[in-house]
Measured scan of single mutants.
Amino acid sequence: VTTYKLVINGKTLKGETTTKAVDAETAEKAFKQYANDNGVDGVWTYDDATKTFTVTEMV
């Protein structure tokens, strides 16, 4: 189990959260659900070296 981080660069919501998951795919599903629940829709990137997902909403 690995800890993954999500950085949110939203128009109205900004911040970070973490989740523990067995792999990046599982973490991504959890983060996308979290973003969807919070009304964040944007471009996703993932950095495997730092285990960090970033979602950026276009203005």
Rank of each mutant, 00 (worst) to 15 (best):
V55Q: 01
A21Y: 04
A49H: 12
V40W: 09
A30C: 09
T26G: 07
Y46N: 01
T54Q: 05
T3V: 12
G15N: 10
K11N: 10
A21V: 04
K14N: 10
V55E: 00
Q33E: 08
E28K: 15
V1Y: 11
V40K: 02
K32C: 04
T26V: 06
V22A: 11
D37M: 11
T3Q: 09
G39I: 04
F53D: 00
T17Y: 15
T12R: 07
N36Y: 14
T45V: 10
T50K: 08
Y34M: 04
A49R: 08
T45I: 09
Y4M: 01
Q33N: 08
W44G: 00
A21N: 03
G15K: 13
E57Y: 09
D37K: 11
T19M: 14
G10I: 14
V7L: 10
N9G: 03
Y34P: 00
V43W: 08
E16A: 08
A35T: 06
T26Y: 06
T50V: 05
A21Q: 05
F31K: 00
K5R: 11
T18D: 05
L13W: 13
L13D: 05
K51M: 08
N36T: 15
V55Y: 02
T3P: 04
E25S: 13
T12Q: 09
D41I: 14
E25C: 10
L13I: 15
E25L: 11
T17Q: 10
Y46E: 00
G42D: 01
K20P: 07
T26I: 08
T54W: 08
D41L: 12
V55M: 04
W44F: 04
D23M: 04
I8V: 09
D41C: 13
K11C: 15
T56F: 07
G39D: 07
T26D: 06
E28Y: 15
N9P: 03
K32G: 03
V55W: 02
V40M: 06
V59D: 11
N9K: 11
A49T: 11
Y4T: 00
T56C: 05
K14H: 11
K51T: 03
A24Y: 13
Q33T: 11
D48F: 08
T45N: 09
E16N: 06
K51W: 06
L13G: 07
V1S: 09
T19D: 03
I8E: 01
A21C: 06
E16Y: 13
V59E: 14
D23S: 11
K14E: 05
G10L: 13
N38H: 14
G15Q: 14
K11E: 08
G15V: 15
W44T: 01
K14L: 07
K14M: 10
N9M: 13
T56N: 11
E25G: 10
A30Y: 14
A24F: 14
F53R: 00
K51V: 04
Y34S: 02
T26A: 11
Y34T: 03
T19S: 06
Y46K: 01
T2Y: 15
T54V: 06
G39M: 07
F31R: 00
V59T: 13
T3N: 07
F31I: 02
G42P: 01
G15L: 14
T52R: 03
T56E: 09
K5T: 11
A49M: 13
E57L: 07
K20V: 15
T2V: 13
K11W: 12
V40R: 02
A21H: 03
T26W: 07
T18G: 03
K11Y: 11
Y4G: 00
T18K: 07
T12D: 14
T52E: 04
Y34R: 03
Q33A: 11
T3A: 06
V7H: 05
K5G: 03
T2F: 15
N38M: 09
T50H: 05
K11I: 12
A49W: 09
T17V: 15
F53V: 01
N9H: 10
V1A: 12
T18W: 13
K20F: 15
V22E: 08
E57G: 05
V40H: 04
T19W: 08
A30T: 14
D47V: 05
T19H: 08
E28T: 04
G10P: 03
E28V: 08
D23K: 04
E25W: 11
D47P: 00
W44K: 00
W44Q: 01
Q33D: 06
T56W: 09
E16L: 09
T26C: 06
A27M: 01
L13K: 09
V59P: 10
T12W: 11
E16F: 14
F31C: 02
D47A: 04
N9S: 10
I8Q: 02
A21I: 02
N9T: 08
T3E: 14
A30D: 06
V43N: 07
T56L: 06
A30E: 09
V55I: 08
G42T: 02
K29G: 05
W44A: 01
E57T: 08
K32W: 06
T54D: 03
V1D: 10
D37N: 14
D23T: 05
V7T: 05
V43H: 10
E16G: 08
V43Y: 08
V1M: 13
T52H: 02
T56K: 05
V7K: 08
K29P: 02
V43I: 11
T2G: 07
D23P: 01
Y46L: 02
Y34V: 04
T18M: 12
E57K: 03
I8Y: 08
D48R: 07
M58C: 12
G10V: 15
T19C: 11
A30Q: 10
K32V: 06
T54C: 05
G15H: 14
Y46C: 01
T54P: 00
Q33F: 06
V22H: 09
E28A: 15
D23Q: 04
Y4H: 02
T45A: 09
M58E: 10
T3G: 04
A24N: 06
Y34W: 10
V1I: 09
V40T: 03
D23L: 04
K11M: 11
V43L: 13
T54R: 05
G42N: 01
D47R: 03
G39S: 07
A30K: 14
E25A: 13
T50E: 05
L6P: 00
A49F: 09
T19Q: 07
K51G: 04
M58V: 12
G39A: 07
T56G: 03
E57P: 08
Q33C: 06
V7S: 04
A35V: 08
G42H: 02
D47L: 04
E57W: 12
